[in-house]
Write a protein that binds this DNA or RNA. Structure first.
Lengths: 156, 156
DNA sequence: TTTGAAACTGATAATGT
DNA sequence: ACATTATCAGTTTCAAA
């Protein structure tokens, strides 16, 4: 992969701030024409620097107002158990982020739900039913100072 | 704000999966013409359901391979101290997510840096220099199972 | 690698059902 | 609230510097 120069980095900044910014406007801001912008963006896409373009949605306007961080500890730690948990958790739409971490617990989950009722249902009927769950400690998000994560959408 | 119907929700799903999907393709998938798609998207934007469109970038290809979750406890908890910390942390580009939480600590930070050297510098010369920091406990991300967060880009 | 221009495609607005 | 049509703006491609 070719190293990224400053023009690439600025293009990435612009597209991260607004994925719909036109090649024309990017070109104008960088004192170039649209062709090099277009070619660089295509290159950044094909090299995987740009993974995708997404719409950032408002959680609460989609009825998902409760964010909970869950520290999960497994009972068994053999590789196969870790992998099974990772597979299982990927299938839960409420889990919008999941990290395998060092330290006290094994995983940190970011869970997005409508309200406390839905969270109770998630814990009792979804998370706790996974095999190999040892301990799950919930911490509720009081205020989101910085964050931009996808929102799960269930079409009825 | 008008309630969202299933067509709205599907449009949101499509745009979350790919912000560059054309009105034409969305229309085809929903058996409609481009006009209602266009009008609905404009409405969703103006109502703030769609907050922005962004490019998802590959962290490691941008030289940010180390993700650390930091539990921060403050010394003083009066409202003014909390607000000051929130203001301060917004100015740190390494902090890509920040939550005020219930439970053991006061804040959880997601920090994105190049490597351990850069992390040491962040802790010693940036986080620890903020006033009112009581305790900061780091947990390193071993594996990211799910996540899509913006990457800070510094143009040289 | 970039420019400039030409061909193509999608976004947008007006009109009608 | 949606379909059709017409116009406009952006993307995309290519010859040439």
């Amino acid at each position: 992969m070719a190293a990224l120069d400053n023009i690439d980095l600025k293009i990435l900044q612009f597209l991260q701030a607004n994925a719909l910014m036109t090649n024309k406007e990017i070109a104008a801001r960088l004192n170039l024409t649209t062709t090099p912008i277009h070619e660089r963006i295509k290159r950044l896409e094909s090299e995987g620097v740009i993974e995708k373009y997404t719409a950032i949605l408002n959680k609460s306007k989609l009825g998902k107002s409760l964010v909970v961080l869950v520290d999960v500890t497994l009972k068994e730690h053999a590789a196969s158990f870790l992998e099974q948990f990772e597979k299982d958790v990927l299938l839960l739409p409420e889990v919008v982020e999941c990290y395998c971490i060092s330290g006290g617990s094994d995983f940190l989950l970011k869970v997005l739900v409508r309200d406390m009722d839905e969270y109770r249902h998630f814990i009792l009927h979804k998370l706790a039913t996974l095999s190999n769950i040892g301990n799950a400690q919930s911490r509720f998000v009081v205020n989101e100072i910085k964050s931009q994560t996808p929102v799960p959408i269930e079409v009825i």
